[in-house]
Write a protein that binds this DNA or RNA. Structure first.
Lengths: 215, 215
DNA sequence: CTGTAAACGGAGTCCAGACTTCGTTAAGGA
DNA sequence: TCCTTAACGAAGTCTGGACTCCGTTTACAG
């Protein structure tokens, strides 16, 4: 591949990252081309369809994110590592998770793989933190991921004051910490390979909906 | 207005609620018409543009939601009231908040007003709970709303097992409680938590071919 | 330097979906 | 019951955006 072609490809991916991250899949390919400073034909030469373009941008994003998570995970203190990981994912992962959810119907295998690796990394970090006893044992990656995604998605849609976001993250972290809660003892199995249905692990039918604790 | 026209209007609104709630603003007006069992022209007679249709659906939704929140707020126990409110908003408010965020750029005044009332209600509930001392005082509606929106939005995009959602909500509620404030001060108490599954074999990095949910 | 094929971009084509037109149907008052 | 006209829906028009064609430009091997 020629040098300029390689450069253009990167420019296009970066542009796609921004356009689709901002406008969701409603962003137009033409905008991507304009932002990348190339003709629209060039975009389609590198990525035959709009979908493949989005897919490539997502894979790139998750791969980058995965590299970052690896660094965070290897930190000595598991609890601090988890905190770092969560903050980083919300900051960096914001815009693209929106896209990922848009593709959720028939997510391309490549994207599933890439995002799966990130999820596995979070899973590892969470379990390690739980092993130290500082994180409540009754939650799994699913819950954590749900909260992270929610926050990331929302902040991506409409920018939020840093201070507000920071406090929101703090609320989540606090919620994950072990406190005087009567550990239900059962560690939920939330490995990333969940069956689509929700009937896994017959969770206690009597969820403490009205827990006698404060709040 | 003729009786049948009034009925059709309601049918159209309900259909719009479902279509746009499911597919976001990408849902087509034709789908709405089909689901409502009317011709497409009828839809446009009642609502001159697609945007006005979405707007009307949103206003209806927030108005309904506001009615429900009022009931929750008047409960005797402020803390329990806040909990009920949060759960209800996540359950009921799921799909439409997505739309609301889509319209966020130039949200129609009517929608702003309607959603603002809901927000005010949440604000009231939050302050009352804080007054009892059971909720940490350093967070405001913004943080709460951010978390609620995130959860609602995400669950709307891709259905989540009830048990997982329930635990995620519980995490938020715990995070709002007064006792375990300093999230950063890792509570590394080496209490003999029944950490049997300490290092539960992290999931295999290679996703199985069976397509799990992305992200 | 020069030849050549890889890459490029502007000007299309084509279709999905928002919105209109107009002849038909039926609500509901007299 | 009949008549007026509000309300209806099938069959359009039109525009935005995905994707293609083809003549032009340019990296780089010889």
């Amino acid at each position: 591949m020629r040098q300029d072609a390689r450069e253009n490809r990167q420019r296009i991916l970066a542009a796609a990252d921004h356009v689709f991250g901002t406008h969701g899949e409603a962003g137009s390919t033409e905008d991507v081309a304009r932002l990348a400073g190339v003709g629209i034909a060039t975009v389609f030469r590198h990525f035959p369809t709009k979908e493949s373009l989005i897919e490539a941008a997502l894979v790139r994003h998750f791969t980058d994110l995965h590299d970052q998570t690896q660094a965070a995970i290897t930190a000595p203190d598991p609890t601090a590592a988890l905190h770092t990981l969560i903050r980083r994912m919300i900051e960096r992962g914001a815009s693209k998770l929106t896209l990922a959810s848009m593709l959720s119907r028939d997510a391309p295998p490549a994207v599933v793989t890439a995002s799966g690796q990130v999820k596995a990394a979070v899973d590892t970090a969470l379990r390690r933190a739980q092993a130290t006893g500082s994180v409540r044992p009754d939650v799994g990656v699913e819950e954590l991921y749900l909260l992270i995604r929610g926050l990331a998605q929302t902040t991506a849609a409409a920018p939020v004051p840093a201070a507000v976001l920071e406090r929101a993250v703090d609320v989540i972290l606090t919620g994950f910490a072990t406190d005087s809660r009567p550990a239900t003892g059962k560690t939920v199995d939330s490995s990333p390979t969940t069956e689509a249905g929700g009937a896994r692990n017959p969770a206690p039918p009597d969820r403490p909906a009205a827990r006698p604790r404060p709040v």
